[in-house]
Design a protein around this nucleic acid. Sequence first.
DNA 1: CCCAATATGAAAATTTTCTTTCATTATAGC
DNA 2: GCTATAATGAAAGAAAATTTTCATATTGGG
Lengths: 295, 295
Amino acid sequence: MIRQSDSYNRILEKYDELPRQQKKIADYIIRHFDEVVFLSITKLANVLQVSEATIVRFAQNLDHKGFPELKKDLVKYYRDYLTPGERMKRSIQTMPDDPFNFARVVESEIELLKSAVNTIDSGSLKQAVDAILRANTVYVFGNSGNECLANHLSFRLSRFKLKVVQQSVSGKNLFEKMLVIDKNDLIIDYHFYKSTIDFRRLMDVAEEKSIPVLLVTDSILPPMIKKAKIVLHAERGPAGTFHSQVVPVAINNALIDGVASRLGDNAVKALSELSEIRKRHYYSDFSGNDAGEDI
Amino acid sequence: MIRQSDSYNRILEKYDELPRQQKKIADYIIRHFDEVVFLSITKLANVLQVSEATIVRFAQNLDHKGFPELKKDLVKYYRDYLTPGERMKRSIQTMPDDPFNFARVVESEIELLKSAVNTIDSGSLKQAVDAILRANTVYVFGNSGNECLANHLSFRLSRFKLKVVQQSVSGKNLFEKMLVIDKNDLIIDYHFYKSTIDFRRLMDVAEEKSIPVLLVTDSILPPMIKKAKIVLHAERGPAGTFHSQVVPVAINNALIDGVASRLGDNAVKALSELSEIRKRHYYSDFSGNDAGEDI
DNA sequence: CCCAATATGAAAATTTTCTTTCATTATAGC
DNA sequence: GCTATAATGAAAGAAAATTTTCATATTGGG
């Protein structure tokens, strides 16, 4: 419910005193908050079948100088409380500040995941899965803070018997590693915030050799994403705070799920084959029923 | 990723051909989508320090009649896809059983996170953070599917200038690695589902040498948790499905947050020191303002 | 039902936003 | 380094949005 908006409270306060047409305006604003923030007085007047003058008077009755001020106030509220990013920031701020409160961490992760839904579309996801399955070998790049992501994805994919190579190198070694990659392969790279030399090198070489690139990022600046064939984009929280890897991990999961469902029985077969091999060769000498490992 | 917006795609298409100032406009729009939808051309010109005329030309270069048309297009996209809840609803409704539906993945992750709140108590979390800070060196173990978790935690902790060693080894090598660890250190291990030989070896040696162990697990079977000093326990979903690492990553985040808040200014200092070093030695030779990396 | 007080809409006046023009500056090709 | 071409900003001009005015309509007490 709408709160703490000066305008909103004023509307409620004065609602009973408002004349007929102005009640109509008040009703509409309360019910269609997120429309009104984008409407001019003329359009609002048309929608409501009320004169522009009356809308101005309505605004003035609420102690605003005029309609633009009223709208500014509505926009302020809208942006502060109803926009995904803002709501997240706020919910983190307002939480009790106990650093050992797991609920707090979870709460903000959930908000992040929810907003990520807005930015990952199933088209790209499908494209990504196709590219993975089509590739001769999948090369997963991810450095420093993103090594864990590269590791996670490459581990899971290799369990489906896909040819996957994890590359967590930087500097000149990067070129060497890239020598063997060609256009029938796929490069997956995790890269956040700003582009680095290594990233640009990678993208340049990929372009030169026509190697398709799947980029997982929180940046949507053209220099960053222009050269990538497929981009999966998700915010990881407000800049300046510690960035969580929960959203990228969820993206990995989506990719893994997608690949698994495409492979169908073959995925299951690959996994059980692995478990067979393991049982026979490595763990069969050990006590009874706890030899397995989770999938 | 922003899609299906004519404007957005047109910006990407034409980005390279755009002159200097207009690139600036393109960058700002892409980065601050949700600001621009509320700005007049005058205000945008002020923010960007670009003339209004140039903004009009930018809009026209994108095949719009003028600025209002461009804005209308941006608003349309914003309202369709970025409004709270809209997109989530949309994608869940439109494709209930599509394996490429990110919203579905996210929903189940959210459920898992929510239930994890009940099984992680702040007492254990606090204990865990204390143990990390008290330890001489933190040894983070995590194999195969859990290597990414070990990598994630050790990377972040080492950024706080803590002594952290990641150990992703198995078999006999494990013994060798454990030789150097003593009771003033801390072992962190990620272990799910069932115990393995390696796990028992680790726990046995730890017990013998009185090394404290922090165990992150989804199992509460006594053989699993008995020997660990601290246990953080969370479900990762029903057996038989692919197990997501989202919950363990969230646990890592909680640990990292806790450590950061305990270190207070020192954490910030360590991070900014790192960024200084990097700036001076590695990236200072490169173009302008994009040398950084995220934290 | 009538009258005063208030509310309303149409249209004019004003303000703000947007577009075009034109002189100046930057850029790319030679 | 020079020149042709394109890009830019300041300011004028056009268009749209907003406010005010004023004549008319509505409302609520007597």
